[in-house]
């Protein structure tokens, strides 16, 4: 049922927590997990500003995802890592629908009403527009 799982991450605590659920789910159904990390314009600007060259930017992003990649390495599961650029919500939706995953697992930042009004909730957007079931991990 959940053979191909897409795990959307941003390197935050929430995404590490959601990685645990994704791996467990994939194990249960003997499936695979793919990771998607979307770098938005603001993050791209910050990463470029704080690094001297391209290699350093790549290294920094890898480090951000390292706890999650370590968990996947331990689980002996096949996985791919996709680093994309753009608006996280739409990018995740497009990627998930195009490659027809069975389930998208995503962490929720746990914003309050005011924060989600101003910042917007990526997990809501994904849940609304992705064709497959979505697991939002709080």
């Amino acid at each position: 049922m959940f053979k191909r799982i897409l795990l959307a991450v941003d390197g935050s605590e929430h995404s590490i927590r959601s990685a645990r659920y994704a791996i467990e789910l994939a194990n249960k159904f003997e499936g695979t997990t793919d990771i998607i990390y979307v770098v938005d314009g603001k993050t791209a600007k910050e990463d470029v500003l704080h690094s001297t060259n391209k290699l350093e930017i790549e290294k920094k992003r890898e480090e951000k995802l390292k706890p999650i990649l370590d968990m996947l390495d331990k689980s002996d599961m096949d996985y791919n890592t996709n680093v994309l650029h753009g608006d996280p919500g739409p990018e995740i939706v497009e990627f998930a629908n195009e490659k027809s995953y069975d389930c998208v697992v995503i962490g929720s930042r746990g914003l309050n009403d005011l924060q989600s009004f101003i910042l917007g909730s990526v997990s809501h957007k994904v849940a609304k527009r992705v064709n497959c079931p979505v697991l939002i991990v709080k």
Partner: peptide, 12 residues
């Protein structure tokens, strides 16, 4: 040149 680096990164 800073901006060019940012656009390089955003567009890969």
């Amino acid at each position: 040149l800073l901006t060019a680096n940012i656009v390089d990164d955003m567009t890969d």
